[in-house]
Nucleic acid binder design. Structure first.
Lengths: 199, 199
DNA sequence: AAACTTCTGCACCGATCAGTGCAGAATGCG
DNA sequence: CGCATTCTGCACTGATCGGTGCAGAAGTTT
């Protein structure tokens, strides 16, 4: 749709500002990103934000779309790979890379975007991160012990095995939140443990 | 520490009330659970809550501990299994079951607890859930096509393979948020793809 | 029964939230 | 130039947040 060119033109770059908004949502989550946080990062006023993007929800949706085209572009790329296995490899390697890019928020906007860390929630967030790390440490210690008694081969790395197992469990939690059934998830778990130990 | 028995005793069951609080945090996340939500579910007044548990953060920590002893007890149990492989199997099967128990919130408090869904955030939460499901559908369609061209065996289930791959990716996102490096995650991904297709 | 302690319910606090009204400045078109 | 239109900045709204002060009720101990 063509916009009439009458009136004062907007004084900021809408695309660049959206990029900034995406970063804030990515790092702080939807509710954790206050309008003040957003407008300060975007360098525009509240009124300009509402005029240009609608409301906060609309802005979030547009930021998510932008994420898909930017840091999340590896998904579309991976889907183009010639074989199913290469699709899976490209997709997962891309997610490992995109979720840990230096200078960008860690994790995936699609998973973390609903996280809230607006000062108040930050403590809870850290508490949970530590809690998950603790659980992973328990697994690692257990696997370390398994190596000592010969239950796992001497070359096995307890740290990596623990991370592998915990990553599956974390994924299971996200899937469950999205509505997957126990049966669905049991299949995933069975598949994940078919090669053991995970080299 | 012994509490002196002077004065009016509390008129509610502190353990039962904590259980209710855990459910609210589990379903709505830390920030999404307002004091009003909590006190209504627990059936006590604000003042009683503060007197009995400290503040909201303390209550959350106690609820997390309660979760560990209740729905999360499968972790401690799994760690007792005789072999490393059985530990991993019990742990993951337990997570699949505990994350999908009927009548309880879906997912894991340790992962979802930082999610916010206080009315305002609920729309964002649904948006993201749909977004992840969409990505998974793209993978499924791609694998379906792979079956048709013989790239995947005829018996392969594209839906299950897509869920497997997406579960790993979800787990990777949580791990990255917890500080895992790209190298760490690449190892996980490599291990997850060692058996292909994941039967 | 008296004294003492701690309970409960309600109103209230300052802070912050998303979103808006208003006034004035700035630009494009005729 | 001057009009029309849309921009920007600021103050403000009603609602909600976590947390608290107060007053009176209730139960335990002596």
């Amino acid at each position: 749709m063509q916009k009439s060119q009458i009136g004062r033109p907007r004084a900021f770059d809408a695309e660049a500002a959206l990029e900034k908004a995406m970063m804030i949502f990515w790092a702080q989550g939807y509710e954790g990103a206050s309008l003040t946080d957003l407008t300060e990062a975007m360098g525009i006023s509240r009124k300009s934000l509402y005029a240009a993007y609608g409301n906060k929800e609309d802005l979030f949706r547009k930021a998510l779309q932008r994420y898909e085209e930017g840091p999340g572009a590896y998904v579309a790329e991976a889907l183009q790979a010639p074989t199913a296995r290469e699709v899976a490899m490209a997709f997962l390697a891309g997610s490992a890379r995109a979720n840990t890019l230096p200078g960008l928020p860690a994790g995936c906007l699609g998973v973390q975007g609903a996280l809230a860390a607006g000062e108040a929630g930050q403590v809870a967030r850290e508490t949970l991160t530590k809690w998950r790390a603790h659980g992973q440490a328990l697994l690692r210690d257990r696997f370390r012990q398994a190596v000592q008694v010969g239950d796992l081969p001497v070359g096995a790395d307890p740290e990596k095995i623990a991370r592998y197992v915990m990553t599956i469990a974390n994924g299971v939690a996200v899937q469950a939140a999205g509505g997957a059934t126990c049966e669905d998830l049991q299949h995933v778990v069975d598949a994940a443990l078919q090669n053991w130990p995970p080299a």
